[in-house]
Design a protein around this nucleic acid. Structure first.
Lengths: 158, 158
DNA sequence: CGTGAAAAATGTTTCGG
DNA sequence: CCGAAACATTTTTCACG
């Protein structure tokens, strides 16, 4: 699974990507029919797209509410010190935390933006203790609770 | 595809969910072996999980860099007026915008948090014009550019 | 509810254009 | 690089414990 910066993608590849971003369990025959290509051709292109890393992975999307984790929380974290080792340590900590679904290192005065998926407020509070207070190198953080997840995991626009 | 609030999930269902959140193309035989279950048993459980909406969808995850959309931008939007119709109109606008990958309606003084996936800054600037300035009902907004996507699309913790 | 073996569908490989 | 046919795997169905 290499990661070349640019892979040549023609119009057919884009159509395939659009299709599998909606449903990657659709038979290649169905995908092929919708874009005018035979199943083997679709298979070959999909294999290339996966091996070249254009398709990073193939997953089921699980509903948080249905599995007892209804809360989405967005946290903004500003760091105390921006020394590289300290930042890397923070990234590692965020990466390891299963309740952190997404983590971005951003410009501006909020250095990290984190998106949590938790059972309830108590679980989040406990996490902030471990991650922000005892974790170190956190100057301040701000918490936003999502009242409505309007859109989640949208496809990459093509 | 119903959406009951709570579905009874036993330990085996959770193991299956953990597996397909990593790779939903893995043969049911492989999943079954890793948790001590026969392929048909895995199949039935997966079908139930999909029909009950616990598994919302099955998708390929596409690398934004590889398809010419390397920029991730987080925008915080505060609304002018919180009348329901106006908020709904905004949600609709954000939903329809393909470059908006995620949209949350949150507590606090930032009413919306948006995550964009765009080609370059010019595209984002153009979008802000259409969505925020000409769109109406936006009091102010703040832009954060992601310098590093530490973690994206993590699994729901189980 | 899980198991095991047939049947149907899907995915893969081969080969000729 | 595509497509048609042969081939291998997987998914599904069904009878049974």
């Amino acid at each position: 699974m290499k990661k070349p910066q640019t892979v040549a993608l023609d119009a057919l590849d884009l159509k395939i990507l659009r299709a599998v971003q909606e449903d990657n369990l659709a038979p290649q025959r169905v995908i092929g029919e919708s874009i005018g290509l035979s199943p083997p051709a679709v298979a070959r292109r999909l294999q290339n797209l996966r091996e070249s890393g254009v398709i990073r992975k193939d997953v089921s999307v699980v509903d948080g509410h249905a599995v007892g984790r209804p809360l989405t929380i967005i946290a903004h974290v500003t760091t105390e010190n921006e020394r590289l080792e300290l930042l890397d340590a923070m990234k590692e900590r965020f990466l390891r935390c299963p309740q952190i679904q997404q983590c971005y290192y951003v410009t501006g005065d909020m250095d990290f933006i984190l998106i949590f998926n938790v059972r309830d407020m108590a679980e989040y509070t406990e996490l902030t203790r471990a991650l922000f207070f005892e974790g170190g190198n956190v100057k301040s953080f701000r918490t936003c609770v999502s009242m409505q997840n309007i859109k989640t995991d949208g496809p990459v626009p093509l």
